[in-house]
């Protein structure tokens, strides 16, 4: 297991380098000169030259590239092209809001989706299964921005239970602000987890080793929750890892709807202001998330399934 973890960690290095390379060149092949974008069309050639020198844009491409890689690896993203604020600080302020949202949504997804999926599989075609199917249908067909607005209308505007805007100050206030956005994202996650768990468990319950467990005299509850569910969790974990990555882009919409000052809001602001350095840093952070989530998914799968580490 330790060998496997080390191997997976080593594999992260080329992935990160590849991602950084893609981010760098994607921004370089975008049309338009960042200097002109920042200073306006009527900037003097002198001002443009100074600007380019300040950002290192006058250097050869490979120098820019290695500079960028070195900066990214040391988490030094420079200053915003727009207002000169250190990007590291901007990210530091925004990240907790996005991370807490993603974690809360995932927790909701697991806490609701896993048991519901397991129970609907066990009571297949029963009343609970019908409810589960309805739940999944609603979860999948409601777009998150629409569902978010709906929640805002009902629970903030009319009932005034939850705040409308912002991320909150202090732990409890932030928690209070987190509830509605987390539910918005978490519901879809729960629907997805439920469907995945249900189909995976139904498949596993047909396996011979489930019959072996029953034949040993194991109570049905333990047959399902010990013998079957652990096997069913392998595809569920992989699926949820992939889904969590798509949810990361989902945080952008939800942050916009609830005006949360998270990474999504920061990035959208950067894009509309053509703040190249900010967008570049935001992309690196998102890419870093992807790598981390993938790594955690793999390690979790290996913890569940002993066959993985020994391959």
């Amino acid at each position: 297991m330790i060998g496997y973890i080390l191997r997976r960690l080593l594999e992260v290095i080329p992935t990160v380098l590849l991602v950084l390379t893609l981010v760098f060149f994607a921004l370089r092949i975008m049309p338009g000169d960042p200097a002109i974008a920042a200073l306006g069309e009527f900037a003097t050639p002198d001002a443009i030259a100074r600007f380019r020198e300040k950002l290192g844009l006058n250097q050869p491409l490979y120098m820019q590239y290695f500079g960028f890689i070195a900066q990214s690896l040391t988490a030094d993203f420079g200053t915003s092209m727009n207002n000169g604020a250190p990007i590291g600080d901007l990210l530091g302020q925004a990240l907790p809001y996005t991370i807490s949202l993603a974690l809360a949504a995932t927790s909701i997804g697991i806490v609701i989706g896993l048991p519901l999926g397991a129970m609907t599989a066990v009571h297949r075609d029963g009343k609970l299964d019908a409810f589960g199917r309805l739940f999944a249908l609603i979860g999948f067909s409601l777009p998150d921005f629409y569902f978010g607005i709906l929640l805002l209308l009902v629970f903030s505007l009319h009932l005034d239970w939850f705040p409308m805007l912002g991320g909150g100050k202090g732990f409890f206030d932030q928690l209070h602000h987190l509830v509605l956005p987390a539910i918005t994202l978490g519901l879809v996650m729960a629907a997805f987890t439920m469907r995945l768990t249900r189909s995976s468990l139904l498949e596993v319950l047909k396996r011979d080793y489930v019959r072996t467990a029953r034949g040993k005299g194991v109570a049905e509850r333990w047959v399902i929750f010990k013998h079957a569910l652990r096997n069913a969790l392998i595809p569920v974990t992989t699926g949820m890892g992939i889904y969590l990555l798509t949810t990361l882009s989902g945080t952008i919409t939800v942050e916009l709807v609830f005006s949360r000052p998270g990474l999504g809001t920061l990035l959208i602001g950067g894009v509309s202001a053509r703040d190249y350095t900010l967008v570049q840093a935001g992309l690196v952070v998102f890419a870093f998330f992807v790598v981390v989530v993938n790594l955690l998914t793999d390690l979790l799968c290996a913890a569940i399934d002993p066959r993985i580490t020994l391959r």
Partner: peptide
């Protein structure tokens, strides 16, 4: 197939 793959 009759042994559970995730337990020793």
């Amino acid at each position: 197939t009759s042994l559970n793959p995730v337990f020793t």
